[in-house]
């Protein structure tokens, strides 16, 4: 049952992303990508991941603000999509070959509904589920993994966020450039 519901939601996501990539107007394209993210949030809720669903909603709103900042008050927001024929054919051939190889690879995955950590008793996820409350004191096992067992990952995440904001500020600033021109 849940497979059918997720399949329908994923079909909506595919339709939304095609609309997003094929519309001429940039503002409509950006607004068309937001439902895709919300559908993925609903799928996260169905799959038993409420933390990720909440994070996905918040990130969706923030990304909408950032992307609208890129397109608002720009004069030329529509571009005629005319690419040379040969390049398009090459790209589609490459995507088709990629699809064939992925079809072959996806057959080796465990089927949906029986994840890999249930097959192996020594998998780390089993340890987190059994000892998470005792060792860290967090009722939410996801929180105990993020902040205690794999705290260094979260530290790296904070570093990446800081670096990306620093990079954005360095690209957007204009003062140093202006001073050079005056000299």
């Amino acid at each position: 049952m849940i497979e059918i519901i997720i399949g329908i939601l994923l079909t909506f996501m595919i339709i939304g992303s095609i609309i997003c990539l094929e519309t001429k107007d940039l503002l409509s394209a950006i607004i068309a990508i937001v439902p895709v993210g919300y559908f993925s949030g609903i799928i996260f809720l169905l799959l038993g991941a409420p933390d990720i669903a909440i994070t996905q909603m918040v990130v969706e709103v923030l990304s909408l603000i950032i992307l609208i900042r890129a397109t608002i008050r720009r004069d030329l927001t529509t571009i005629e999509e005319e690419r040379d024929f040969f390049g398009l054919i090459t790209t589609f051939a490459f995507i088709f070959v990629f699809f064939i190889f992925a079809m072959e690879a996806l057959r080796y995955l465990p089927p949906f509904g029986s994840p890999a950590f249930t097959l192996n008793q020594n998998a780390p996820s089993n340890r987190y589920l059994l000892n998470g409350l005792k060792e860290t004191g967090a009722a939410n096992i996801v929180n105990s993994v993020i902040l205690d067992y794999r705290g260094y990952d979260t530290l790296g995440e904070a570093t990446i966020l800081f670096t990306s904001i620093l990079g954005a500020l360095a690209i957007l600033r204009v003062y140093a450039r202006k001073r050079k021109k005056n000299e």
Binding site: I52, T55, V142
Partner: peptide
Amino acid sequence: VDPLPQAMVLT
């Protein structure tokens, strides 16, 4: 369900 991919995807 598996908590480990959820934590990684959150990151």
